[in-house]
Write a protein that binds this DNA or RNA. Structure first.
Length: 365
DNA sequence: GTTGAGCGTT
């Protein structure tokens, strides 16, 4: 039984040893403690030229057949469409599609977010909270939530940093504040509302020898896979369900190579739901056009050729953006920049310094 | 004057 797993960010980076649980599994949370934002692991089996994902169930990573000691594992991050990995699977034979171009452009820094601080001493005030977290970087928001009637602290609050690096640092460790261990997490309110129907993708053109395990191994590089289904008798397609619907949606419309076969990924929504989706998209065209303008790209959900210089966003990209517009969360779409999109609140480094102790403007609707 | 998992009166 190995005590540690060697994990590194990239092939050339030094590995970090992350402890294995008593039952031989590895917790994603432990990986994320060393690699903030990590959502999974992949590795190179000796007999394979492509990466293989580590099985992930409910935040628990299960050891591959050869165990944790067999090789170094690499960190997966949820940065929206994982184009680079798809392309390596395809041996870079395919032309760069519009979706790939769009995804590369859209794939910038992760977002800054307010962070919830749990477990504060009831005596800690907003100034002390800010002073503590200033050790990690510039604090642009510090709040302690009080009981409306008693006026006393409820023992939790919120902080926000001016830059994402500070946020990562603060999120990657526990904090001793006023003599108590406190937790710092992304707020629940910022989590994606998951729609089970949109978390599932259709995998078409499957070869007959494909197994649910093949699909699971391939798709877990993009995010946590919660279910794989191949109808019996074999009908050349299957379904893969992700824990995060944005991951599923980011893959739709692509062709990927699995076990040497080009399979097609599409939305698994029923037809009537797809129709409703279409009309919903139509209503957001103006907003998306504004987004496209901000990014300097053409936006066209029908993927017709752009006049000049720009490129199109596929329906899958538009779907991901639409979701972001509706939830106010761009985290899994990866659209960078604090301003100019024209949808959703603007908040953060650009906000006035007098915001330091309160009245955050980030209301996320 | 007490408490101790959680999620934000604007």
């Amino acid at each position: 039984m190995g005590d540690f797993v060697k994990i590194s960010e990239n092939e050339n980076d030094d590995a970090v040893e992350v402890p294995v649980e008593k039952n031989g599994t590895l917790l994603v949370s432990n990986v994320a403690a060393q690699f903030p934002g990590a959502c999974g692991l992949r590795y190179r089996p000796v007999d394979a030229q492509s990466y293989r994902g580590v099985r992930l169930v409910d935040g628990v990573l299960h050891p591959p057949a050869d165990g944790w000691k067999s090789c170094v594992f690499f960190v997966n991050y949820p940065k929206g469409p994982v184009i680079a990995d798809v392309r390596s699977q395809e041996k870079r034979k395919l032309e760069e599609s519009d979706a790939v171009t769009a995804a590369k452009l859209l794939r910038s820094e992760p977002r800054i977010s307010d962070l919830v601080v749990l477990g504060l001493p009831f005596s800690t005030n907003e100034e002390e909270l800010k002073d503590y977290f200033s050790a990690f970087g510039s604090v642009v928001l510090s709040q302690v939530k009080n009981d409306p009637v008693t006026g006393k602290s409820k023992g939790f609050g919120f902080v926000r940093f001016a830059d994402y690096e500070s946020q990562l640092k603060a999120m990657s460790m526990r904090h001793m504040i006023g003599g108590r261990w406190c937790e710092v997490k992304l707020p629940q309110s910022k989590m994606y509302p998951q729609n089970p129907e949109r978390s599932r993708i259709f995998v078409g053109r499957c070869p007959e020898d494909i197994t649910t395990e093949d699909l699971r191994q391939f798709f877990c590089q993009f995010g946590e896979v919660t279910d794989v289904y191949i109808p019996k008798p074999f009908r050349s397609f299957g379904f893969v369900t992700f824990a995060n619907e944005a991951v599923a949606q980011s893959l739709c419309g692509q062709d990927v190579i699995i076990k040497g076969s080009s399979v097609h990924l599409a939305t698994a929504e029923p037809k009537n739901a797809a129709m409703r989706q279409q009309s919903r998209l139509a209503t957001t065209q103006n907003t998306l056009a504004g987004l496209g303008a901000a990014l300097g790209v053409g936006v066209n959900a029908a993927a017709t050729p752009a006049p000049t210089g720009g490129f199109n966003l596929t329906p899958a990209m538009v779907a991901a953006m639409t979701q972001a517009l509706q939830t106010g969360n761009w985290g899994n779409v990866g659209v960078g920049g604090m301003g100019g999109v024209g949808a959703g609140p603007r908040q953060g480094p650009g906000a006035s310094p007098s915001n330091a102790y309160g009245r955050p403007s980030g209301n996320w609707m």
